[in-house]
Every structure is written in structure tokens, then in C-alpha cells.
Design a protein around this nucleic acid. Structure first.
Lengths: 201, 201
DNA sequence: CTAAGAAACTATAATCACTATAGTTTCAGA
DNA sequence: TCTGAAACTATAGTGATTATAGTTTCTTAG
């Protein structure tokens, strides 16, 4: 194996990057629906067939990294949390520093995030990628809480945590929104104050 | 206005029903991906253009009722709940009696439900329809709890409740799974037992 | 009763994402 | 250096969805 990994794989990564860049540039300029995959392939100087060989999930996947490294952060955040910190607290802090919740980003990443948040198709695909990590996250949570990873409670918590970016991402203050949701997940929905609240006509 | 609503609208509803029936029959027989919209249009004896005039959301929408009457049940369940019953309890009971959670269904509805649960595209679209009611459900919850309908906590709860069918629908015992999730939403994730659970190497 | 006019419908053609095929070039490794 | 796999290409096709332009069918105001 060569210095990095052989010329072949280097070239492959290069065309993949060319596709990402072309797609991001064109999407930013003309909007997601205003660009055809043919134009993107052209801009990246590859054939359409090659484009789809690189992005089997289709047009939306073009500007996302292939890897499943999204939930790796979250799993690591749980496993490496400081002593005495709850699982949810670890997840809260981890999410707060990534994705749509931090304001200090390089302008290119900011533009990319805005594009995703502002384009339904991309937002949905982003959610799909997140949700794909549900099993891994559930396993991590189960490991720390001594439950079965297939326990529906664990799976539901994992799912609900992973939904947070899409849910809070469009709010005026995404960070505050995220914290509100975590509070809900930690404490549950307050049942008492409204139990008797029925207005008889 | 005539007896029911004029021959025109009656015929319109008739073709819509013909499309639904054709789609359901063909999907059941050959699977969702094994049927083209052209075949469905043929079976219903209309043109493809007419098919799409009736189902603007596309192929997946064919077997679903157009109406937004899904969440109406939930909103009504909240508003009409017996005195002293919490909002979540009302939602729990309402969901338990509908959708994938009840076992005694006429065989045709059962087949339809199995088709939806077993077809990713249909499951996703079903979720989309549910989620579309998020605003209405949030409004109902807010009205009963004296909060702002735009409060992120309210929106999150609404969203999480609406996700339950997709989340619990594929479980071995959907009803038990649903109850577990409601318990989580009511009580929150138990933080205490695992706070100190850190294994120092 | 009748004449607009709207609504539903039709055939046709086009666009676009995506797949399949078969062949070519290029790298990796024995 | 030879061989096979991987990446790439052009080409053609499928299938969903939309646009266009025109036809039939109900509705309803006059």
C-alpha cells in the first residue's frame, strides 16, 4: 500500500470531491430543483453513469459525505462522558456543538447548512442519514443503562434524539429549542397541571 | 346543489375510488415496485394525466385518502377527553384503537395495513401524512395546557406522538411498544440510576 | 331552455432521475 | 509483464411526473 492509499483510490476520492463541489456550487446558485444531475456531471466532467456510481442514493446524497460518521460522534460522546454525567446530558452537549446548533462556522459550511435546511428534499435526506444511526445509538444507550438494545424505550429515545436536528433546526433560536426538547425528554411531559382543565359548557 | 353533491363531484369521487381500488389490488398482487402508474391508470380505465390530477402527491398517495382527517381523531380525542384524564392519556387511548395497533380489523384493511408497513415508500408517505398534522395537534395540546402553540416543547411532543405509529408499528407487539413510548413521554428518561455508571479502566 | 364557462378528461410529447449494458482505460498485484 | 478488477464512458431504456392543447360533460346564470 502506497503513501496514502494508492493512486486509484486517490483519484476516486478526487472525482467524488469534484462531484460534491460541483453540486454544492450549482445548488447554491440555482437552487436544488434548478439543477439537473446532467449539469452536475458536466460541471464535474464525468459521465452521468459515473455520478450515480459514486452516489448510489441519488441526487440528494451528492453534497453529503458518504461515511456513517455522523452518529459516531454521539456514540463516542456517550462512552467518553465524564463521570457523573447522564447519557442525555452528554448527548445534549454533543449535539450543541455540531450541526445546525453552532453559530461560528466557516462561511462555506454555513452556506451548506442553510442550503440543506432550506431545501425539503435535502432536509429529508439528512434526517434519513441521522436515523440510520438509530441502531448504533440505541446500542450505546443500552450499554450504559443496562437495558436491552431492542427495548422499545431505548429505541424510541435514540430516535427522538436523532430527530432533534430536524425539529429544532428551523427554529429562530435552534440552540434554545434543542435544550427545550432535551428537557422534555429528561423530565417527561408534565401531566398534573392540566388534568382537571376541562371547560364544561 | 343536488341530493348528495352534484353528478360531477360524484363521478370525480368515483374515479378516485377506482384508482384507489386498482392500485391496492395491483400492489397487493405484484408489490409496490412491481406496478407502474400506467398499469394502474389502465386498470382504472383513465389516462395517466387524469391519475396525476387526482393524486398530486404521486404514486404513493394512491392508496391513501386525500383528506386531512387523520389528526382530526387525535384533536377530537384531546378536546373530548373525560374529566380528569391527561392529554397524553387521551392520545394513548386514541392511538391504541386506530392504525397499526388494533388487531381486529376487516381483512381488507388488514391487508392494506400490512402492505403499507411492508413497503418503505408507503411507510414514509404515511409518516409524511401524519406529520402534516403536527401543527393542528400542537394547537390542540397548547390549548389544553395553556401554552403557546409555537412553544418548541409543545411542537416536539406533538411530533413525537405522531412518530409513534412508524416507530412502534414494526414491533412484534405494537401495542405494548406504543405503551412503552407513551410511558417515556410521560415520565421522561430516568436519569438517576446510571449517573454514576462509569467503568474506569 | 340555452349558452357561456368551468371542470374533468384525453392523447401526446417532453423532462428528469435513475438503471442496464457493453465496451474501454487504468491501476494493482502476482 | 501479464491479468483481473475497478473506474470510467457512451448509449439506450424505464418509469414517474409535468406541460400543452384540445375534447367532452356538467353547472348555472340569464
Amino acid at each position: 500500500m502506497a503513501t496514502t492509499m494508492g493512486r486509484r483510490e486517490r483519484k476516486k476520492a478526487q472525482t467524488r470531491r469534484a462531484l460534491s463541489n460541483a453540486a454544492l456550487r450549482l445548488f447554491s446558485e440555482h437552487g436544488y430543483d434548478g439543477v439537473t444531475v446532467a449539469q452536475i456531471a458536466d460541471e464535474a466532467d464525468v459521465s452521468i453513469a459515473t455520478l450515480f456510481a459514486h452516489v448510489p442514493d441519488g441526487k440528494e446524497a451528492l453534497i453529503f459525505d458518504d461515511g456513517a460518521e455522523r452518529h459516531v460522534w454521539l456514540v463516542a460522546a456517550i462512552r467518553d462522558r465524564p463521570s457523573g454525567q447522564s447519557v442525555l446530558e452528554a448527548l445534549r452537549r454533543c449535539l450543541a456543538s455540531r450541526g445546525p446548533f453552532t453559530e461560528d462556522l466557516p462561511p462555506d459550511l454555513r452556506r451548506k447548512r442553510d442550503l440543506i435546511v432550506g431545501t425539503p428534499a435535502l432536509r429529508e435526506y439528512s434526517r434519513k442519514l441521522w436515523i440510520a444511526g438509530e441502531g448504533a445509538l440505541a446500542a450505546a444507550i443500552a450499554a450504559e443503562s443496562g437495558r436491552d438494545p431492542a427495548d422499545m424505550t431505548v429505541r424510541a429515545l435514540a430516535r427522538y434524539v436523532l430527530e432533534i436536528p430536524e425539529l429544532a433546526g428551523t427554529e429562530a433560536d435552534p440552540l434554545a429549542a434543542m435544550n427545550a426538547i432535551f428537557d422534555l425528554l429528561e423530565s417527561g411531559w408534565p401531566t398534573s397541571p392540566m388534568d382537571a382543565r376541562r371547560d364544561p359548557t
